[in-house]
Design a protein around this nucleic acid. Structure first.
Lengths: 219, 219
DNA sequence: ATTAATTTTTAGGCATACCAAAAATAATAA
DNA sequence: TTATTATTTTTGGTATGCCTAAAAATTAAT
């Protein structure tokens, strides 16, 4: 298998399994990779032979230790590049994902470590996702989704789980950038939309959007 | 055809044809790309169909206008990255070629132009090769190979045509870095090796090495 | 517990990008 | 000019990574 193919599968499995705590279904992979389910079955069998995943027919897939290691490496490369593009090269947080998707496949540890060093070995990328260190160690956090937030509580925006340009631009518009403080005012009973205050302005967040915003409780 | 394949063929044809002044033979391509000649024939027929090259059976290949345009773009990406790696990230000139070989395929003009801007839009890369500008315009120069240099004349090292780590390290050892001034002392009659003075030290250069060093006449 | 819907797998195909070996063509030397 | 050598092309294969359509297995609904 081509390394780029392997890397894309492992990275996607890692992301879909929520840090390898859950098993991933073929369908999920097919959707994320925009690939036919039949092709996914085929690829997983090969990845199983290569000892990167444990793939059980009609049940699901999870990464082996070797698979996690490789996945963390790709995730690191992706997130270091995203951070570098934003912090050092002046790109917006909504445009770096696509570029990092290509840069992440450039295989040279010295390069990534050099970039990380210049950035001061950051632990979170511009979307609030944790960056594994050179050994694959990842920062644990007690963040929750905005959709799980409680009324009248204070939170700080820590990240997003959707990296699409459209969503990030939408957040920018409402000043919901990383680090922004927010207060949950009310949660609508009939549709679960969240009314919050950010930068002294009231914002109405749909349940779908609230699922994609990661926050940390304050106080 | 995969874009990466196309890019590698066009770039190599460009480099081998000395700025598209000469026709390139299949064998040359096969050697440079480390690919079977049969595969080269096949690829060239496709590139011809795609209008990137004019390929005449059993004669040779040259780039079309579209082919040159694409080749210059790849060459630009490669050389900008090499310069950035050396100037901004602290890599040695002997280790950047391999990395740039991968980075050159990341397709994002804004990124390359941003890097170029940071570097002050350089016109030559760390090996002395000219960097095409965003429009494909390339700096003309009157440089010659060291092998064509005349006795007792002064020259300045401007570049190399061999990018192998081994060769570049060899040059470093003799202080033959870009910008270094040299005086050709003698040219051995029987084997054409060149004895020159660089940094007040005498150095003996083999004809093969002299073929790979680009110099500019001074005075 | 059946039926219905969904997911997964199998089977058969296709394009890409390579290869080795043989045949055709061109270049070089005797 | 002919013979020898080198290069190029043809022919017939292979592995990869995708696809569609249909079958099989699993899951959900009645």
């Amino acid at each position: 298998m081509r390394t780029e193919t392997v890397e894309n599968y492992l990275k996607t499995i890692y992301n879909l399994s929520a840090d390898n705590t859950a098993v991933v279904a073929n369908q999920q992979l097919a959707d994320k990779l925009a690939i036919n389910p039949a092709s996914v079955t085929e690829a997983l069998r090969k990845l199983h032979e290569l000892k990167y995943v444990i793939y059980e027919k009609s049940y699901g897939t999870r990464l082996t230790t070797a698979g996690v290691k490789m996945a963390l490496n790709i995730v690191r490369r992706h997130r270091i590049w995203e951070t570098y593009l934003v912090k050092e090269l002046g790109f917006g947080w909504d445009e770096v994902h696509v570029i990092a998707e290509e840069l992440e496949h450039v295989k040279n540890d010295k390069l990534i470590n050099k970039l990380a060093e210049i950035l001061g070995n950051p632990v979170f990328d511009p979307h609030g996702d944790p960056i594994p260190d050179a050994k694959g160690k990842i920062q644990k956090s007690n963040f929750i989704k905005l959709s799980e937030a409680k009324i009248k509580n204070n939170y700080k925006v820590m990240g997003v789980t959707d990296h699409s340009t459209a969503f990030l631009k939408y957040l920018d518009k409402h000043h919901l950038i990383i680090g922004a403080g927010i207060i949950v005012k009310t949660i609508e009973e009939f549709d679960n939309s969240i009314i919050l205050v950010c930068q002294k302005k009231e914002v109405n967040i749909s349940p779908k959007a609230a699922e994609c915003i990661i926050v940390q409780a304050l106080n």
